[in-house]
Nucleic acid binder design. Structure first.
Length: 255
DNA sequence: ATGCGTCGGGTCAGCAGGAA
DNA sequence: TTCCTGCTGACCCGACGCAT
């Protein structure tokens, strides 16, 4: 049994979602541009590594923020293989032994499956069992409830020797593996990733609208020809939301 | 039968934190 | 910069157990 500790670097649309929604592919808002992985054996010893850049198909212009952070340029990517080819290498790297995926935050695992499905590739060879190391590191390092520690901070707090820069997929995978080695294994649960559940549209990319609170209040102030107090504003907002739940509507009877 | 309190699950907006 | 997730806090409902 092996642990596959991996990290991904993504590129994304450089246009704001509001202004250019059509330019952001909601099926795949983050396109993988680099995958780094280390394979650990049962004794947590590194037995192989993978480091691949991916030629983008979806977002062919680098988001400056991503370029700045990762140091990856579009020229570096254009000479690389597309995701379909890299995926074959990923499967080769994982091999046929039983394995558990290890990630820093559930985001990477979600985006990996998203990218695989976006390219109409078969997800079945990939293990659905994973460990979110960030969650356990945050607990171990006594982060306040609901907060997660960043990889850099975790590595520093755990006195991990930092020789290479962060935000490089292979380096981050290596540091994640080092953190994994240092945290207690006693209460770690292996989670089964639910692909179908997680492929549903997320909160922010559904067609859901956002309440323009100030517009709502202004409308009331216009209608009543006066300012609404703070309490009134709260009541209006609450009434609006409760109305949307339709909980007080009486079903129409046919007889 | 009725009333009460608790619990779990649901709605929603908003915020903080972390990811690239 | 943009996106995502988890949490909070406001409220609701239905189910349940218990007391009257």
């Amino acid at each position: 049994m092996n642990y596959i500790v991996f990290d991904l670097e993504f590129n994304q649309s450089l246009n704001s979602k509001k202004e250019n929604k059509n330019l952001t592919n909601l099926k795949c808002p983050f396109e993988i541009i680099q995958i780094g992985a280390v394979k650990l054996d049962e004794n947590l010893q590194i037995i192989s590594i993978l480091n691949k850049l991916v030629k983008p198909e979806l977002y062919t212009v680098m988001n400056p923020f991503v370029e700045e952070m990762t140091g990856i340029t579009i020229d570096m990517l254009n000479t690389e293989q597309p995701f379909q080819e890299v995926y074959k290498e990923i499967l080769e790297f994982i091999g046929n032994d039983k394995n558990i995926l290890c990630v820093w935050g559930a985001c990477d695992i979600k985006e990996l499956f998203r990218n695989i499905q976006y390219h109409n590739l078969d997800i079945s060879p990939i293990s659905k069992e994973y460990i979110n190391i960030q969650f356990y590191a945050s607990k171990y390092l006594n982060c306040p409830k609901g907060t997660n520690i960043g990889l850099k901070n975790a590595a520093e707090l755990l006195n991990i020797n930092i020789e290479n820069k962060f935000h490089n997929a292979l380096n981050d995978a290596y540091y994640t593996a080092e953190v994994f080695k240092k945290i207690p294994k006693k209460n770690i649960n292996i989670i089964k990733y639910d692909v179908n559940k997680n492929m549903k549209p997320t909160r922010n990319n559904t067609e859901k609208s956002i309440l323009d609170t100030s517009k709502l209040i202004k409308q009331f102030e216009k209608m009543f020809n006066r300012e609404m107090s703070e309490e009134e504003q709260k009541i209006i907002k609450l009434a609006y939301m409760m109305g949307k739940t339709r909980q007080f509507e009486i079903p129409h009877s046919d007889n």
